[in-house]
Design a protein around this nucleic acid. Structure first.
Lengths: 224, 224
DNA sequence: GATAGTTTCATACAACTGTTTGAATTGCAA
DNA sequence: TTGCAATTCAAACAGTTGTATGAAACTATC
């Protein structure tokens, strides 16, 4: 228990390299070179390469989940047990978007690592993501309290779409920048969060029964 | 030019195996075993493993793009040069969703392969996807005609969100099924397309200037 | 300062990867 | 049939990968 130095040097080096070059072509030898430690150190301290990746991902995603739940709890307490739906969605997508996008996050290896983890799909991370369901259920519960009477399926779809927009923005931010030739500002994270939340709220409250076969033209207006 | 037999046997076997087990752990030896051909045949007929994957992906995605443009062209001709926005978005997300989800597509290796290609992110496929920008610009142009005066950035965000919901639904269909405990029907593809289109239309037409700092509650109603 | 436990290190291992080679076989035209 | 090109094949190649080993170096306790 004395030498955390090696341990954390490996973690830092691995996070940096994975963030920079992806999981695909970063070997243990690259990592130990960057960390200036011996090759065997990874297996000694982490057991295996996969466990190293898992620890990296778990640490970061636990932090995000904690932040999410804090925001949710705060919003629900403020609303006396019922948070407004936009606050709930804000708590859901805000931490992730803020963590991965945003100013001066360019240099943050943690953020870039999480972007990689979102783009590539490597077994140890996939295993962890599959346990995320329980976490999301807490948001479904809050949404149910916020929009009582709403069909559960609608809530699931709303949450699903909120995550879709948030994750896709993270995954494809370069492509969106290129496609829009810079007209979409990917630096103003606050505006992005608001935009995702706003659309998600519309998805949830727009029309009771989503257009069945031929969706009519939909017009939304701001109701104060 | 005589033996396409080997060539297409390889293509079929590769598509099946990649669809079933992902790109990560399917080797050339797996493929040639499934195809009952010699190991060297892949390099002989395709040059390299990456070129095999690329050909597989290009074939399928060209088909999807063609279908998209057909739908778009049809809608614009019907509208005399200006298609309604929901028709444009329908042309954008319909072919992809229909191609990857939907009934009796369970057995379609082509569909499952495209899902894999959407989930995992392997270099040859990434290279091809990066050339997709020109294709998407045609939809931006159609959207500009459909919603004149609208800020270009808004159009880009709308298209981006439409793709986000469509791709995320494909990628995470199992997870959504599990999360919603089957309450979200992933088999009714038509309904899913309509749902994605409907939300995308709301995103594009909902409020002129997307809520800046504190998004107000938004209510949409059906017009017409 | 001897001892026991932890940590580092160089090295080897065993397996697997995509690719190449050169000879055998096939198919087809003259 | 003969000749030539296209195709198939078994085998080997060259490189990389994550992991295991056992000895050395360190660290703290008594």
């Amino acid at each position: 228990m004395s030498s955390d130095r090696t341990r954390s040097a490996i973690l830092a080096a691995a996070e940096k390299l994975y963030a920079d070059r992806g999981f695909g072509d970063v070997t243990l030898r690259d990592i130990v070179a960057e960390a200036n430690v011996n090759l065997a150190a990874v297996n000694y301290h982490f057991g295996s390469k996969d466990e190293l990746i898992a620890e990296l991902f778990v640490t970061r995603s636990l932090a995000t989940n904690r932040e999410r739940l804090n925001e949710l709890k705060f919003a629900e307490e403020k609303g006396g047990g019922r948070a407004p739906i936009d606050a709930i969605l804000h708590a859901l997508v805000g931490p992730t978007l803020r963590g991965c996008l945003g100013p001066d996050r360019e240099g943050s290896t943690a953020a870039r690592f999480m972007i990689r983890a979102s783009i590539e799909s490597v077994p140890p991370i996939r295993r962890i993501k599959n346990r995320e369901v329980d976490h999301l259920r807490k948001f479904i519960a809050a949404m149910r309290r916020s929009l009582p009477g709403r069909d559960d399926a609608e809530l699931y779809w709303g949450l699903h779409f909120a995550l879709a927009m948030s994750h896709h923005t993270i995954r494809e931010k370069e492509r969106l920048t290129r496609l829009s030739e810079g007209q979409c500002d990917l630096n103003d994270v606050g505006a992005i969060v608001d935009r995702v939340v706003s659309v998600s709220v519309m998805a949830l409250t727009g029309d009771e029964t989503p257009a069945k076969k031929t969706p009519g033209k939909l017009v939304a207006r701001e109701a104060r």
